[in-house]
Amino acid sequence: MSFRIIVLAKQVPDTRNVGKDAMKADGTVNRGALEAIFNPEDLHALEQALLIKEERKDAEVILLTMGPPRAAEIIREALYRGADKGYLITDRKFAGSDTLATSYVLSMAVKKLAPFHLVIAGRQAIDGDTAQVGPQVAEKLALPQVTYTEKFTEIKDEEVTIRRRLERGVETVSTPLPALVTVHSSAAQCRPRNARLLMKFKHARTISELQEETKDYTEMLNNKPYLQIDEWGVSDIDAGEEQLGLSGSPTKVKKIENVVFAAKESIVLSSEDNDIDRLMKELIDSHVVG
């Protein structure tokens, strides 16, 4: 049996680089205009898996992502860097899932890939910054969890030793396998794409992507079955519909307010009472303070 590592990853809008073209006329962000990227800490997670693969010849790295059809892009990115296989979990019924519903879906998909040794995910995704999905998947799978991983210091068949980066220090822990581990941004950066793997996997496609292609992939896929990226929907992972999407999400968004970034034109105020009063009111109303 191989030493199976499942990496959980997410495609996210690049909220760190909100450029001019992503701003709407009213100063709010046009989310559609942001570039879709491999969530940064999930890349750190992938690197940890690839490092283990270098150390253990029997290791197998599988990338699992849940998202819209275009999220297959990050599966290819993972294949280019050394992952062995990827699965895209996609279904319209997943829309509106909060962290709890998301972790339910991911946990059901991970179960399909059992037996496995490690599930590795980034600590958090930059679009929500919640850091909740990792621990929640661990709970759903009844696995021990080790969060904020910086380095695997020892890998054995049935146990790993991990250095964790805490807010104010470091901690070294051991956990029996299987376990779920989340990876901190202080861990090693992910390696770049490998040219040979890029050539090998550049035609890797999901079924949805093949339907959009004008080129005929039939022969290529027959000769190179590894180019087929598996796509799973609700029924493939035996998920209960009441536990996904909006109905499976206990949190509801009541209101969204856009933070308005005004062009830098200073408002000049005096030290008079009414000016300062007005300023403090504005800061409180816009949640800058308070």
Partner: peptide
């Protein structure tokens, strides 16, 4: 600094900061 500021308050800090504290407290 005023060129990159969203708000520039012109005056003395001894005067302005106590007012900011006062009006913050009042408005919260």
């Amino acid at each position: 600094i005023n060129q990159i500021a969203d708000y520039s308050i012109i005056g003395n800090i001894e005067d302005i900061i106590p007012k900011m504290i006062k009006f913050y407290k009042k408005n919260t």
